[in-house]
Computed example of a mutant assay.
Amino acid sequence: MNIPTSNVQSSAESGAKPRERKQRHVAEEIRGKIYVYFCVLLMIVTIFSIVYFIASRGLAPFVSQGVALKDMLLGLKWKPEGEPPLFGALPFLFGSFATSLFAAIIAAPLAFCASIYMTEIMPKFGKTVLQPAIELLAGIPSVVYGFVGLSVIVPFLRDTFPGQGVGVLAGALVLSIMILPTITTIATDSLRSLPNGLKEGSYALGATRWQTISRIILPTTLPSLLTGVVLGIARAFGEALAVQMVIGNAPHIPHSLFESATTLTSIITLEMGNTTSGSLHNNALWSLALILLMMTFLFVFVVRMLERRVKR
């Protein structure tokens, strides 16, 4: 029996097309994997390079230049050009923690109330108007926050409270506005991801809206809310320019919220440009940068622990 030549060719072509498509898909998948693995490898190498560079500079004062770690962490005087030179970083650590924690104390209640308003009280208005307005704050440069603090907050504190207006409270107020979008966004996402069955069950048992919010919603989402607070503190801890403009930059531990202080980031930005690379003063500033990096890792660790608690 003779089979037409045209039928044989069409069947061969139809069988070749799926193989070609499969080969293209395999080639695209390989190229995609190579690109993704390259990006991941580049990111890992970049992170380890940054850590190695900062650690190699930051550990030099303790390894080869005779500075004791205890003297830096617990010392109260910063005199790099003195005889002998003193590198007490405790005032900077205190200033960084004080401004960051006070900023979180101010911003967290406002962020929680705003997120509850946007998700539970007026979701439509909050999603269309309030949330975009709050997220707009995240795009404002830090120098603008510092200038507003210097022009508005500092004169108000100077006229209302004792002191010159600059100090820990001024820095905390500026930072609270800066970290408000971070905490609000995370809190809003966590409240919106809450299963509706929990709220509906609470309403079915006769609870009011405020009882549901206070006894069901907030306790259930508390780990996620705390994650937002920790990320806000990490954001405030690493801020330099805005705080530097309003905190006064005095290297001592303040005795009140209205006294001048300084932070790790402020002292690094103020003095790094006036030092010689490889000198003891320069390496001591890199040690402060290493401390700042370790604090960032600590905040990330706390966030991971809170995320594990949420998954449980």
Score class of each variant (00 low, 15 high):
Leu90Gly: 05
His281Gly: 03
Leu293Val: 12
Tyr37Gln: 11
Ala133Trp: 12
Tyr35Cys: 06
Ile50Met: 15
Gly149Thr: 12
His281Met: 10
Ile233Cys: 11
Pro219Val: 11
Leu226Asp: 05
Ala114Ile: 03
Ser260Phe: 01
Val51Lys: 04
Cys113Gly: 15
Lys127Tyr: 12
Gly165Arg: 00
Cys39Ala: 13
Arg308Cys: 09
Arg57Tyr: 07
Leu90Ser: 08
Phe112Arg: 01
Leu90Asp: 07
His252Gln: 13
Val63Cys: 04
Thr269Cys: 02
Leu285Gly: 02
Ala107Phe: 05
Glu28Leu: 14
Thr188Val: 07
Pro155Asn: 08
Phe94Gln: 12
Ile47Lys: 01
Met122Tyr: 10
Ser115Met: 08
Leu150Gly: 01
Lys33Thr: 07
Glu135Asn: 14
Ala108Phe: 11
Leu41Gln: 00
Glu83Pro: 01
Tyr35Asp: 02
Leu175Tyr: 03
Val26Cys: 08
Gln244Pro: 00
Ala60Met: 13
Glu81His: 10
Phe147Lys: 07
Val168Pro: 02
Leu290Asn: 02
Arg21Ile: 15
Ala107Arg: 09
Ser176Trp: 01
Gly88Ala: 11
Thr99Cys: 13
Asn249Asp: 11
Leu173Asn: 00
Val129Arg: 14
Thr227Pro: 07
Asn7Leu: 14
Phe62Asn: 03
Gly15Met: 10
Phe97Glu: 04
Glu29Asp: 11
Ile233Asp: 05
Ile121Tyr: 09
Lys311Ala: 10
Pro141Val: 04
Leu86Asp: 08
Met245Ser: 05
Asp189Trp: 01
Phe147Ala: 05
Asp189Gln: 11
Gly228Arg: 02
Ala12Met: 14
Thr119Met: 13
Gln164Ala: 13
Ser277Gly: 03
Leu74Gln: 05
Gln131Met: 11
Ala12Asn: 06
Ile233Val: 15
Thr99Ala: 06
Ala108Arg: 01
Leu76Phe: 09
Ile217Glu: 04
Phe62Val: 02
Pro18Glu: 02
Arg215Asn: 14
Leu101Trp: 08
Ile153Trp: 04
Pro132Tyr: 10
Val230Trp: 02
Ile134Phe: 09
Arg215Ile: 08
Glu200Pro: 02
Glu29Met: 12
Phe258Pro: 00
Ser214His: 12
Asp159Gln: 03
Pro195Tyr: 02
Met118Asn: 03
Val51Pro: 00
Val26Trp: 07
Tyr37Ala: 15
Ser100Val: 00
Ile54Ser: 04
Leu136Val: 04
Gln9Ala: 13
Leu292Ala: 06
Ala104Leu: 15
Thr263Pro: 08
Phe258Gln: 01
Ala284Val: 03
Met178Gly: 00
Ile153Asp: 01
Ala236Ile: 04
Ala204Ile: 07
Met272Leu: 14
Ala236Lys: 06
Gly75Cys: 09
Gly197Glu: 12
Met305Arg: 06
Cys39Thr: 07
Arg24Ser: 14
Ser10Phe: 07
Leu257Asp: 02
Ile105Tyr: 10
Leu90Val: 06
Lys22Glu: 15
Ala187His: 09
Arg312Asp: 08
Leu205Thr: 06
Thr220Lys: 09
Thr208Cys: 06
Gly88Tyr: 09
Ile106Thr: 03
Phe237His: 00
Ile134Arg: 09
Phe94Val: 15
Phe147Gly: 00
Leu290His: 07
Asn2Phe: 11
Ala207Leu: 15
Val148Asp: 01
Thr99Gly: 03
Met295Ala: 14
Ile217Leu: 06
Phe112Val: 12
Ile267Ala: 05
Trp78Met: 04
Ser151Leu: 12
